[in-house]
Amino acid sequence: MSTTGSTGIARRRATLRRAVIAALVIACLAIFTGYFRESSGGPLHGAQSAAASVVTPVQEVATRAVEPFRDGWGWLTSLRDARDRASALEAEVEELRGRQVFDAVREQRLTELESLLGVEQLIDTERGLGGYRVEVALVNTRSITDWYRNARITKGSSDGIVRNSPVVAGTGRGAALVGVVTSVTANSADIAFITDGRTEVGATVPEAGSYPGLVRSTSPGQLSLTDIPREAPVKELQAVVTRGFSGGGLPSIYPPGLPIGQITSVGRQEVDVAFTVQVTPYADPRRLSYLAVLVPESPEAQRRAEGR
């Protein structure tokens, strides 16, 4: 509890502080007023010059002493900013790479789907390939052997696909035969490629007299056409197509006229009765994401699929 004496002392101290502050303010105003009113050679200007001559060396020393710390702080700050910019650029580069890969995959698939548009022209009735409906499906699994044996597609019997349905793919030359359906479930189908080393296809060379032959794979990714007689004018770059008949003159599960590949070499040994013809298939199964199944609809196409 305060007393009367202590309260009086506190009041006197407060009054004294106010008086000192007021005096300082008045003194500052007087000095500033006198400084601006006097000439450059006045005492106030002289005092300022004297004070500056004393303070300037001290300020320079202090500036030089602080400069390494200031430069170090600036270096650390710039290093942090550079790291942040590098991280941002790295993230941007990764995003651009991802977009580039996505765009490349999308472009490849669009190109492949566009090439499948030629399948409809392939099965027109005027060329003898009528009676089929085209069902395009995505490849979801495939063999990884050198022979490119088989693949599985995402459509099956619920889409009308049956066993022995021919399978084609789009190429730069149009649609070409790549395989045949070997087994079917409701929502998937297994495809055996003609390059699997076990599939045989009755084939012929229209430009060489349409002699009957047999295409099978003798090395990974390549085909061989056999049973072509020596008198046939077989040459390189000629097209090989299905002939619609298998061995013994029986109907083939493949309709006639489906492109298979192109002749790349012809063996001409004097003692041979028939040519040894090497064929490169038009479609490479390794690069296919979509396949087109020729679903038999006409009675003739259905008989072919049933092997009769």
Rank of each mutant, 00 (worst) to 15 (best):
G156E: 04
Y148F: 12
D159C: 07
S157P: 11
R173I: 07
Y148T: 13
A175I: 08
G160V: 01
V162E: 05
R173M: 14
T145S: 15
D159A: 15
I153T: 00
T154V: 13
I144S: 14
K155N: 03
G170N: 05
V162G: 03
V162F: 09
G170T: 07
D159Y: 11
G160A: 06
V167N: 02
Y148W: 12
G156I: 01
R163P: 02
N150D: 13
I144N: 14
S158A: 15
S143P: 00
D159R: 12
N150I: 04
T145W: 06
L177F: 04
I153E: 02
V168I: 11
D146Q: 13
W147L: 06
G170P: 07
A151G: 00
Y148V: 12
S158I: 11
S158R: 15
R152V: 15
P166C: 11
P166W: 06
T154W: 06
N164F: 08
D159G: 05
R173W: 14
D159L: 11
S165R: 00
S143L: 03
G160P: 02
G179L: 00
V180T: 13
A151H: 04
G156K: 08
D146T: 10
R149F: 04
Y148L: 13
N150E: 13
Y148I: 08
G160E: 00
I153R: 03
V167C: 00
A175K: 02
G160S: 08
L177C: 10
A176W: 11
V168M: 08
A175H: 09
S165N: 07
A175L: 09
V162M: 10
I144Q: 15
W147Y: 07
I144K: 13
I161Q: 02
G179W: 02
I144F: 13
T145N: 14
G172A: 15
R152M: 14
D146G: 11
R163Y: 02
G170K: 01
A151M: 09
G174F: 07
G156M: 05
V167D: 00
N164G: 04
G172T: 13
A151N: 03
L177P: 08
P166K: 08
R163I: 10
T145A: 12
I153D: 03
K155Y: 02
D159P: 01
V178R: 03
G170Q: 02
S143V: 05
P166Y: 10
V168P: 04
D146S: 14
G170M: 01
I153F: 00
A169W: 06
P166T: 10
P166R: 06
V167K: 04
D146Y: 10
G179C: 04
T171E: 07
G174N: 09
V178A: 05
N164R: 12
T171S: 09
G174V: 06
S143W: 00
G172E: 15
W147D: 02
V178E: 01
W147V: 05
T145H: 07
T171R: 03
I144M: 14
T145R: 12
G174W: 06
S158V: 12
R163T: 11
W147P: 08
T154F: 01
T145P: 00
A169D: 08
G172P: 07
S157H: 05
K155S: 04
N150W: 15
R149L: 10
A176F: 12
G174H: 06
V162Q: 09
V180H: 01
